[in-house]
Design a binder for these strands. Structure first.
Lengths: 291, 291
DNA sequence: GAATTTACCTGACTTTAGTCAGAAATATTT
DNA sequence: AAATATTTCTGACTAAAGTCAGGTAAATTC
């Protein structure tokens, strides 16, 4: 009973679905039926194309149309034909609509804050929620190419630096390391890949172009609560594919032997150990892969 | 973003509610609307009194009545007047109804198994789910008095012994310890209290009657994923209250100094350290409280 | 340029969920 | 014994969600 995976999972389901009644409360808390509330929130989250909203919420086209008419009559949204394809239509929030969406957001935030506040050790609960969210939503993980200066990228990089400082015996000071310049990790010299899931960044990797006949993979980091799911390998493969797209023939990376899981993965993915190729004080292992 | 409690909680919510679409699938997966499916499952879980089902599912009496008629017409349930109060009615599954309920159970089990099977490290996910379930459902925790031979009690006791064996330097062999006899922990000599939440035992404590002028508290255990929530204190208080009900004037307990959290709690709850009062090899600290 | 497809809309419909007032039978209180 | 309360049922209703068969206009294919 305490160890049976099925009993435990079903108990989890019971617990969250009773709690999910509360979630619906945040969607029903403004005196509007669930249908229009869901559509309004989809628009607020940035989906403007009607067809996309329909697919996202799995609504029949007739129903969708009526829900939109309702929101239009409330003065919350405006609908107009798309410029590129006059059959398609796109929706935007009016000022009143934006205010209404903000009110829904405030309700959801409050509800989230309440859940955390009830717990005597919030960080324990939050980490558990991260693990569950990552596991349940793993197939929804997308890998985006963003600027290394994107706030979501910076969040990951800071977590990466903090972890290195914790794990390396010598500590880690980003100023002593050769921190890649942003434009070396942007098109056309390189790229910065971010793993996103349900709106949360859970991993990153940088592809840094150089003028030395090879490019480097830098800043591979996976959120602790997302480890063990094979995401690092996926990020590596995507980064290698991106390098090929950019016409890069040779990749290098440096790492520290403390990060034994990473080292094992590099071997597994066909990387070969080579001689030190830079003067950075932190790495002690160096790899290369020809594409 | 990575550390913001609200963003993390909302991401969790999104992840589980998209997944909860799957949950509904287990209730909708047999071609029956949600209403009758919920009623059938409530009956299957052992609630037979119509009024109780109504309260449990929060259904209007008219709606309830109609849903039951529907299930009756399907040949899944039989309704008859209660013997003690002819106004009340109680429901039972027919053979076909029991089969249908079993089919729903199989769907839920399969869904639970799928979630676990998808994860490369199931135990990590399961522990996280336990923590979340405990946190979200904490107000639903009930403390029941059961026989120490109840399977749910035995599950807890085995976890307790396993943990002692792990934490005590000398190991722990239940055969060398003075294991209380079941009838010393049953009415009228004592009691065995079990903390249950959403169908899962998450803690226990035994009140053991003796003929020596005092009773003992034994086998206090809280599931690791439920610790830090104050449940141990609640169990202690309930056990003390139960002791008072049984006319017990003095309580004792023994413990080991390794279990420092427990020792701190005993002090906090007004227990005083006393001299060794038994020859059990494992404890090295002894407490007493007069009621 | 005619035929087909796509995207959205409209109107007519069904199903599901839920509400409410009152009826009937039984229990409880006075 | 009468009055009141409780439990369930029935009928008449509403709201919300969802379905389906066209219809229109624009885009795409042949």
């Amino acid at each position: 009973m305490l160890s049976d995976p099925i009993a435990r999972t079903r108990r989890f389901h019971r617990a969250v679905t009773t709690e999910a009644g509360v979630l619906d409360a945040s969607f029903l808390g403004r005196g509007r039926p669930l249908g229009p509330a869901r559509v309004l929130n989809a628009i607020g989250r940035g989906i403007s194309d009607i067809g996309e909203i329909r697919a996202y919420l799995r609504l029949d086209s007739g129903l969708m149309s009526r829900l939109l008419r309702g929101l239009e009559e409330e003065g919350l949204v405006t609908v107009e034909s798309s410029e590129t394809d006059a059959r398609r239509r796109s929706v935007a929030l009016t000022e009143a609509g934006a205010a209404e969406f903000a009110a829904y957001e405030a309700l959801s935030d409050k509800q989230a804050a309440d859940i955390v506040a009830r717990h005597p050790h919030p960080e324990v609960l939050l980490q558990a929620m991260d693990i569950v969210a990552t596991a349940l939503g793993f197939e929804r993980t997308t890998i985006e190419i963003v600027s290394p200066l994107d706030p979501r990228a910076i969040v990951c990089l800071e977590a990466y630096y903090a972890e290195l400082a914790r794990r390396l015996k010598s500590g880690f000071d980003v100023n002593l390391s050769a921190d890649p310049e942003a434009r070396d990790m942007e098109h056309p010299r390189g790229a910065f890949l971010l793993a996103m899931q349900d709106g949360m960044p859970i991993g990153c990797i940088g592809l840094k172009g150089t003028d030395k006949g090879y490019a480097e993979l830098k800043r591979l980091w996976i959120a602790p609560t997302a480890r063990g799911m094979g995401l690092a390998q996926r990020m590596m493969r995507e980064a290698e594919a991106k390098a090929r797209d950019l016409g890069i023939a040779c990749l290098r990376l440096d790492t520290n032997s403390v990060l034994s899981d990473a080292v094992a993965m590099y071997h597994k993915l066909g990387w070969s150990e080579i001689e030190r190729f830079n003067e950075d004080p932190y790495p002690d292992l160096f790899f290369e892969k020809r594409l």
